[in-house]
Each structure stands twice: as structure tokens, then as C-alpha cells.
Design a protein around this nucleic acid. Structure first.
Lengths: 198, 198, 198, 198
DNA sequence: AATGAATGAGCCTTCATTCAT
DNA sequence: TATGAATGAAGGCTCATTCAT
């Protein structure tokens, strides 16, 4: 295996970025297994060979693509949470939060299914997934403490809440179930979340 | 693609069954993508060629393997639900239900991750997944109605409950999070479920 | 890696043989590194895939090609040695032996250089080489003992003789040196060998 | 292929030398085929591109590396031979010579196997090899004549002697054969050489 | 109905060489 | 002169599927 270059010059950094973005695009559209490295390179506008100057192998591209994906997902959520400062965590705020989360998922929906799938198939992706979950859960837990939320088993509650919100987002983004009323779903989720932290 | 025979003779039916069971075993152990048809045939004790008399292609095997898997998962849950008849749906019953669900997942855990992953990667598996969800949700909804549970948006509530239970099962079977207290998790889930249907 | 089939049916054995013979031919003509598996398959008249049913990998083909090569080289030498029974090991016999050895090399000369080269580059080929040397040296030593040759350090003498004969064969087969008189060379070698075992 | 510059300035000459020395080092350690030009450049402390200003291609580096290697091998042998002037070529001197030759091989042993291998795989390396042999043989022949050695077929004798010595050196440097007594081997070689030139 | 040998397309990765700067 | 990023062809190997028997 050759030496993997950590790009220094601006142009190189941009080239690496281009490859990651190409991966984000193509993996999302066709799936990781159905995409070959030649296609990523082509979409990125580079040669196949140069890809291996910036990445160890195909999976390395995937991992960095997922990293970018997580950033894209997390950024709006984080912004929202950081701006809550003195706001009371009531019904309204939680619904706002859910809308942000849903939108964040919608904006990045092409890769979503793929990432979930791969987190079940590949150990490294799985680890990345858990780290992301820990990051988000930790941030939320911190916010809750700042707002003087005092409940027992807070970690478990946040964890449950995390899953509930994730499920809601998936539901809304992919419209999997024809007979589900999404507004009712959101309102139900809000109530459940509120009941978890009161 | 050749014509797929629907086996008539007892021996043929058993041969097909053997192949599916071999798939269940091997896909669970090594994963769908890491298993080749030759290996399935070998484990099933048949020739590679004959597989294509009973199945259209490799994915066709997968779909029928997942079908069997769902049966294995659902059977104990269904038995439990059918025996509830006049029992009151209280705290205790729900915890019993959760234990049944968790055990059911544990008994079939090798294939579980794989199935979830593939449901995100493949449309047909995904459809199968939704159908299973509809089957389970429908059964539960029927049970709830039999027990005179009267809430608005019952479909959405059952759906939310379904996801919460699924998450709990995954959590308990795979122990993904080191810092989660599972008993607290189970108790928390029970309370949340109860609050959903009262 | 798939399971490597040890061919059972006559046709399969012949197919494997064909592949080895194709390797003998093509490796000899173009060299191991300049030959790709597709070409071997093509020359053998089979598909690329089937090659990997009979061989673990490309090098496995090489090793079996070399095995065949050694057999081809050794057979006439062995025949000659086994027919010596009661013959006296004089000048004449040794020259006959050298002629046999030279002819044996000439009949298989295309692969010769390649095999020597690879024995220096690859551990497994090297081991094969040493084993061949041990086989030949052992056979010769046995013959010498049968003829009541009594010298000290017989192993070292046979070893030295082996190298001298090998060098002679290379010289005669490849005509590397324009200014060498081969008849003189043969006669000189004969004398040197005689002096080694008297 | 670009125009190959013959370096004029001292710095350039040193740069070229550095590349050759890097090749000597790396080819010896990892082998020619397992070394890429980037690595040679890195070890030499130059850029990959500049290599192609001093050499036509990768093989051109190899040829010049081998040239250096031959110099390293030959120098001590030549010194020894030139200092023989009036010494009698007896048993003792020949053993001294063998020890010099063996040591010379030992000091350069990493590249040795590689060079032998490549001499069988590549025509140009082969030609270089023959030229070296002619150089050494010629030098030895001259020395013998200076010492009034008078035998028929002197060229062939020197040639045979050359091969015998080479084989001895390989034997001693690589210890390929577990059952060979090296002291006996050296003494046997000495005797054989003496008998060739008396 | 059954076998299992055979097919051949497809993919990841390497690396000698070139070229823009 | 020098850099090192970029190119792109080439090759070993796998495996779903077919087919001769």
C-alpha cells in the first residue's frame, strides 16, 4: 500500500473534498457496493490512480463520506441546540426541534439508507455510527442539564429519545407507511419526549 | 433465467427447505455478500446447479430465508399475544411481552443485523420488511382493540410502540452501548408504552 | 479463496495437465511476470475462471509447471543412471552422462532461465529447487556407492560435481561465451569429475 | 521518453550517485520488482520526477546499480590479484583467494541473489553479467600467464574455475544446504582448482 | 431431476512515466 | 533544474449463472 497523502495545498484539499463529495453523491445514488472506484473518480473529475493518493482504499473513501454526511446532519441540530440557552423546553420547542431534525435528514436523504445499512454490515462504519450517537446524545444530555432537567436514568432516557426521534425522521423522510398520519406522529412523539423528561 | 420449479414431491420440498435453512445459517454467520451460492448448496447438501431449479437467483434465496426468519421471530410473539385473551394489559404483562420479544430476537440474532442492513439496501427486502411490520402492528392493534384500549391515532401509537420495542430488542441483543443500564431501559420502555395506550 | 479441486475424472486431469503445459509453454516463451492468467487460460483452451478451480493462484501454476519441468529434466538422467548397474565409471561413461544431461537441458531449454531466475526471487521456487538438487545428488551418491566409489566428503564432492555439470549444461545450451570451445569444455569437465571420485 | 541528461555539475553527479546508491540499497533489501521508483527517489532524497532526468527508465537505474555492485565485488578481488606479483600460486594462496572472494560476496550479499535472478530474466542485465565474467576471467588469465602457468585450453579452465569459485561463494554466503561441511567444501575446491592449473 | 464443471464479466489496486508549475 | 501531483493501463481473482452430461 502506498503512502496516503494528507493534502497540504489548497488545490489538493479541494481535490480530496471533490472525491468525498463524489462519493457522497454516487454512494447515495447507486449504493456503495454498486459503485466502483473508477466511477467515483470520474464523477470527481480525477483519475482512478490519484484516488489512492488521498485514500487508503475504497472503504476509506466511504468512511470519510460518512463523516461528511454526519457533519451535514448534525450541524443544524447542533446550531438549534446551542441557541436554546434560556428557552424553556416546552411543547413548542420540541416540535421545532423535531422539524429541524426531520429537515436535516431530508436534506441528506440520499445517503441515509446506505449509511444505516453499512453500519450493520461493517465494523468500522458501525463504530463511526456509535461515535456519532454518543456525540449527539452527549450534546443533548448537556443541554438538558443546563435546563435543569432532573430525572433518574437520564442516559437511558436520552438514548430512548434518540431512537424515537431517529425513527420519526426516517418515517417522515421516506414515507414508508401509507396509512401513517405524519402530523399525528409528530405530535405523538412530542408528547412522548416531554413525558420522558418531566 | 430458467423456469423455476415449485417442488411437488416431498423430497423436493424438503430439498428446497434444506437450501433455505442453509441460507439462514450461512447468511447469518458470514453475511449475504460474503456467501456464495456454492457454499449454500454445499451446506444444504445439494449441487450448485439444482439451486437454480428452486430459486430464480441468489436474492430469491435471500427473500425466502428472510421469510423463514420472520416466522421464527414472530411465532413466539404471536403465541404470547394470542394467549392474552382476557388478561389486563398492565405493567407486568408488558414487561413479559418485552422479555418474549427480546428472547425471540436473541434466538435468531445471527441473521438479524444482516436482515436490517439488507432491508436498507434492497427494495424487495425492504418491502418484505414493511409487510412484516404491518403484520405485527396489525396483530397488536387487534389485540389492543380486543382489550378495549381506546386512544386516538391508534395506528400511529402502535407504530411508535413497534419502533420503541424494536430498539429495545436490538439494544439488549447486541449490547452496543457500554453505559446503558438494560434493566432501567426495560423499565423505561414499559412506562413509555403504558403511557402510549392509556 | 475457493476450494481447489483435485481433478478426478480423466477429462479433468487432462484439463489440469493442459493448463500446466500451457504454463510451461508461455512462461518459457514470455516469462512468468510477463504472462497473465488470461493468456495461460487461452493457450490451454479454457476460461480464466476454471484455472482457479485447479490452482490456488498464479504462483501455484508456476510451481506445478516447474515440477513438470524438473521431471522432464530428470527422467533421462535417471534412466541413464539406473542402467549403469555393473558398468565401470570411466571416462567414456562420464562423457556419455554429460551428453545425456546436456541433451536433457536442451530439450527443455525454454523454461530453464526462467526457473533459475525465479529460484532466486521466490522462496517456494527456491525450496523446490533445493529439493530437486537433493533428489539428484542423492541418486548420484547412491550410484557411486553401488560402484564402490570410496572417497572422503562424498556429499561435498557430489555437490561440487552437481554444480560443475549444471554449469556445463548451461554453457552448452545457451552458448553464452563466443570464445569457449565446448568440446574442450566437456573433456575438461570429465577429467575434473573423474579426479573428484578417484 | 525524455532526453537523458548526463549530469555535469558536481551536485548533479552526486545526485545521480545518490540515486544509484539508493537503488543498490533498496533493490537489495526488497528486490527490483517490489521496489517502485517513488521509493528509490525517496531514499535518495530526490523527487520522483528528477529520476527521469538522469535515467531512461527504471531498468536503466537497475543497470547502473548492477554496475556499481560489480565494482564493489571486483575491487577486493582485483587488489588481491594485483598484489600477487611474484608469489607462488600454491595451496595457501588459493585458499586466501577463496576467502577474499567469499568475503567480497558476503559484503554485498543483499543484492546478489537479485542480480543473478535478473541476469536470467533480462537480456541487458545478462549482457552486463557476461561482460563482468569476461573482465574477471581475463584478469585471472593474465595473472596466470604472468606466473608462467602453462596448460592447454586455458580459457576453458579459467571459465570452469570461475564457475566453481562462484558456486562456492554462493554456498558459503547463503548456507543453502544444511548437510554441507563448508571447510571441506573450501578445501575440495582448492584442490580442484590446483589440479586445473598444474 | 441432478450434478458440478465451466464461463467470463467485473473490480480494486499498483506503479512507471509524464507534465504543469 | 526540480517538484510531486496526476495519469491510466493492466492484472489477479471471484462468483452468479449456465450447460453438457
Amino acid at each position: 500500500m502506498g503512502i496516503v497523502r494528507e493534502p497540504q495545498k489548497v488545490t489538493s484539499i479541494e481535490k480530496k473534498k471533490k472525491i468525498i463529495e463524489a462519493g457522497l453523491k454516487v454512494f447515495g445514488k447507486k449504493g456503495y457496493y454498486n459503485t466502483n472506484t473508477a466511477e467515483i473518480a470520474k464523477v470527481a473529475g480525477v483519475s482512478t490512480g490519484i484516488v489512492y493518493s488521498y485514500f487508503n482504499d475504497k472503504k476509506d473513501i466511504l468512511l470519510q463520506v460518512i463523516e461528511l454526511y454526519f457533519q451535514n446532519i448534525f450541524q443544524p441540530i447542533q446550531s438549534f441546540l446551542f441557541n436554546l440557552q434560556n428557552t424553556k423546553l416546552d411543547h413548542k420547542i420540541i416540535e421545532q426541534f423535531l422539524q429541524i431534525a426531520i429537515k436535516s435528514h431530508q436534506d441528506n436523504y440520499t445517503l441515509h439508507e446506505e449509511v444505516i445499512a453499512l453500519s450493520h454490515l461493517d465494523k468500522d462504519v458501525h463504530k463511526q455510527f456509535l461515535n456519532f450517537e454518543i456525540l449527539v446524545s452527549g450534546t443533548i444530555e448537556k443541554i438538558l442539564l443546563q435546563h435543569n432537567v432532573k430525572v433518574d436514568n437520564i442516559t437511558e432516557r436520552v438514548h430512548l429519545a434518540y431512537n424515537i426521534v431517529e425513527n420519526l425522521c426516517h418515517e417522515c423522510v421516506y414515507h414508508k407507511h401509507a396509512n401513517i398520519n405524519y402530523n399525528a406522529m409528530i405530535s405523538l412523539t412530542t408528547k412522548t419526549l416531554l413525558s420522558l423528561f418531566n
